[in-house]
């Protein structure tokens, strides 16, 4: 199943990708191109493989069949160090966003800078601005376990974009927050998309997807019956 190629050089390209778990096919024959600056929703029933699909996009999993190319590089050809360097260009937000619980929030958000060897002190102004952008200035010194669900999601988003990645992959970022917070997170992702970032967001919240479609041009992908399909206009 192939989806039409979008304009510009693709940031992520899947070629007849399939993934099986313990011999059972989760999905197969997926071909897809994601252009720079595009916004994609990934939806589907629970257990359809949305998280697995997203993990394939940033090399956390290897496909059983087919090829995944990110920034024109076949992930199969990358070793662990190569994958690590590639991930610095992809911001990932999980539903159960994990942090280093012993570090203050500000240090957690600076973690991508730390691991890439950049001078955190020199980036202090940017970090402060980012914390302010996600509305967590008053929580900068708090430890992650002290944060609410919505604060954790916003913090995870801030951490994902601090390196100014080309792609943002968000796995059900609004899964554990109320509607207002979902709207706020969506607004942040839309702003990032308007800055030229490619966004792929898994969500089963159709109301949220409809709300997004009023603000930004999106494509909705649906995993169903082990196949990736484009969702219809009925959304």
């Amino acid at each position: 199943m192939t989806f039409g190629k979008e304009k510009g050089a693709d940031v992520i390209e899947l070629e007849q990708v399939g993934y099986s778990y313990s011999g059972a096919e989760l999905f197969g024959d997926v071909s897809l191109q994601l252009a720079p600056g595009s916004f994609h929703f990934l939806t589907g029933p629970s257990g359809a493989g949305k998280t697995t699909f997203l993990r394939l996009l940033y090399g956390a999993l290897r496909p059983t069949t087919g090829r995944v190319r990110v920034f024109d590089t076949d992930l199969a050809g990358l070793d662990r160090d190569g994958l690590a360097l590639m991930r610095r260009r992809i911001g990932v937000v999980h539903q159960d966003c994990q942090f280093l619980d012993h570090l203050p929030l500000a240090d957690n958000l600076a973690l991508p800078l730390t691991v890439s060897g950049r001078d955190v002190t020199a980036e202090a102004a940017n970090l402060k601005e980012l914390i302010n952008w996600v509305g967590l200035t008053h929580r900068a010194d708090a430890r992650p376990p002290e944060l609410s669900g919505g604060e954790r999601q916003r913090a995870a988003l801030a951490r994902a974009i601090i390196m100014s990645p080309d792609v943002i992959i968000a796995d059900e970022p609004t899964g554990n927050v109320d509607w207002d917070m979902s709207q706020r997170l969506l607004q942040l992702l839309v702003e990032l998309n308007r800055m030229g970032k490619t966004v792929v967001m898994a969500s089963h919240d159709l109301a949220l997807i409809r709300a997004a479609k009023t603000q930004v041009q999106t494509r909705v992908l649906r995993i169903s019956n082990r196949r990736l399909q484009t969702a219809g206009a009925d959304l």
Binding site: D81, A84, R87, H94, Q98, P112, V115, S116, M163
Partner: peptide, 16 residues
Amino acid sequence: RQVIEVLRLVGARDAY
């Protein structure tokens, strides 16, 4: 283990 997963997620190399 969680620390390692977080570090990998944000692009830490194994050597780091």
